[in-house]
Design a binder for these strands. Structure first.
Lengths: 220, 220
DNA sequence: TAGATTGTTAATCGATTAACAATC
DNA sequence: TAGATTGTTAATCGATTAACAATC
């Protein structure tokens, strides 16, 4: 199986690979060693070593018995798996606190470690339109579809309040985006062909509340 | 099985229940009907109806054949399942863009729809310390442990750069928090008893990049 | 060589979906 | 009553882990 092979890339393996990449970059920056083994990486991230091997196999990476893998080679393989070198351009809609935070991660000129570059932002608030945030100009919502078509934007990032999310998604789809990254807590209805990732932050809060509740009730 | 029963609450069912709650609150606010069925809710959120029934059963909610469930009763049951009425107090560490965004969601005086209230924020940047953001005072990092102990804080929210995350986690644990909500992209090492939720936003970016890559390579 | 590690096949485990009796 | 919907048990599906041959 090589990196071009599409088989077996489930959402879970993809997100683990993202964690491997983050950790390996961290090792490259701070560590002294050039190599690692699947069991080491698994120990660091609390993931079973067989799982790590299967995931790494998805990228086409090959190791050597007894020696393990090269950190540098593994980083390259995972970056290629994610096609990080080929930057995807994105529009971000909704420049509230969260939108501004996402802009901060994805707008810097030369650093796109995840391979996504936000090239314009949109809001319906007149006091924001025209301003520049993190070097990105904020434009009016009604420009989304036309601009997206003309600039061949591939990703739309939705950071609006829930009421607005579906309407914005429709505009982005009409603008020809291939993927939508939805931070609003609503389920969007989209054409089958559109890639959708929901990053509803409040689900994390719910999880914590429930586990704390279990502890409390369990102790009674 | 009733709401006090701890069996079967996996991380997946918990996060689905969070989505049900969001959607049912939305229906209450905007809709005209008082009831819903598991199949309707499943259709709205693209979740199998049997799954919805099993998840709702975890909260102890009971419906009536032919009629379905009451929206109001379901919201109450899920809120009780998450113990949302019993607000948990939290410290937030790292008041960058993301930290500020999270503060915006969880600091407002009277509205804590997820049951988490941030009561203080911390940063190591002198230009931020002493300021008030979203009504919350920013304090120096070295106050975390002592203050957390004295105030009996139950949740620590980490929005720092990756290098700092483990050190902050240690301080929070020493301060007696029962749960950590980690937005930094590193795996934390914590005592078994601490509840941990990782909300690494960049994993969403990785997922989109991979799916776009598959589409592109598949078309070739 | 011996031992550590890889990569893969088989077994297990858990989550989802199907089937169906109960009932309003 | 008949039909829709609930709630649960059984079957299926997919993801994780165990086992093991290959090899440096």
């Amino acid at each position: 199986m090589d990196g071009q092979d599409l088989k077996g890339s489930t959402v879970l393996s993809i997100k683990r690979l993202s964690r491997y990449l983050t950790h390996l970059r961290f090792l490259r920056k701070t560590g002294t060693k050039e190599g690692f083994s699947a069991s080491q990486l698994g120990r660091d991230l609390c993931i079973h070593e067989t799982q790590v091997r299967k995931d790494l196999a998805l990228t086409g990476l090959e190791g050597r018995p007894k020696t393990g893998h090269s950190i540098e080679e593994a980083i390259e393989a995972i970056e290629k798996y994610f096609n990080i070198g080929d930057t995807s351009e994105a529009f971000l809609v909704g420049v509230g606190h969260l939108g501004t935070a996402i802009l901060g991660y994805h707008s810097r000129k030369n650093s796109h470690p995840s391979g996504i570059k936000i090239v314009a932002a949109f809001d319906n608030d007149d006091s924001k339109i025209g301003k520049t945030i993190h070097g990105i100009k904020v434009l009016a919502i009604d420009k989304i579809t036309d601009l997206s078509n003309r600039m061949h934007i591939s990703i739309g990032i939705i950071c609006t309040p829930p009421e607005a999310a579906q309407g914005i998604a429709d505009m982005l789809v009409e603008g020809g985006v291939k993927a939508i990254w939805n931070f609003s807590p609503v389920g969007l209805t989209l054409p089958e062909s559109i890639v959708l990732e929901n990053s509803d932050i409040e689900q994390g809060a719910a999880f914590l509340k429930r586990r704390l509740t279990e502890q409390k009730r369990g102790k009674k």
